[in-house]
């Protein structure tokens, strides 16, 4: 099995203010499905890009690291046998029909501290 990160992207204009109720619902349902299906092993939904702060050698700036129309909304990690299977899972993410998209990228390794 290979682990793939699925990064969710959307246009700044489309997500500000936050996803509306019905769209948010869809994501919640999708997440439950992935949890129950067992392919998802970790997931992180991020707060609005407007709350981000970036750091470079030149100092600290307000906002996302890369100036772009699209921003990252969050990401999750799935375990799949190959890229086709990973793409088939990622393709069902509601963000795609909501006007955004996802990036699928193999995970080299990760660490999560086990909480007791």
């Amino acid at each position: 099995m290979t682990q793939y990160a699925v990064l969710l992207y959307a246009d700044k204009g489309d997500i500000s203010p936050d996803l509306n109720g019905a769209e948010y619902e869809e994501h919640a349902r999708h997440s439950v499905k992935l949890q129950e299906g067992g392919t998802m092993i970790a997931a992180f939904a991020l707060e609005s890009y407007e709350t981000a702060t970036s750091i470079r050698t030149s100092g600290i700036t307000d906002g996302p690291f890369i100036e772009a129309k699209e921003v990252v909304l969050g990401f999750y990690v799935i375990e799949e046998p190959d890229l086709d299977a990973a793409l088939a899972t990622a393709r069902r993410n509601p963000i795609i029909k909501q006007g955004g998209g996802v990036e699928v990228r193999p995970v080299e390794g990760f660490f999560v501290r086990s909480t007791s």
Partner: peptide
């Protein structure tokens, strides 16, 4: 190799 692009003939809607 890394993304594991499969060595298969795809089937179905793909």
């Amino acid at each position: 190799a890394i993304a594991r692009i499969p060595f298969i003939v795809p089937r179905g809607p793909d």
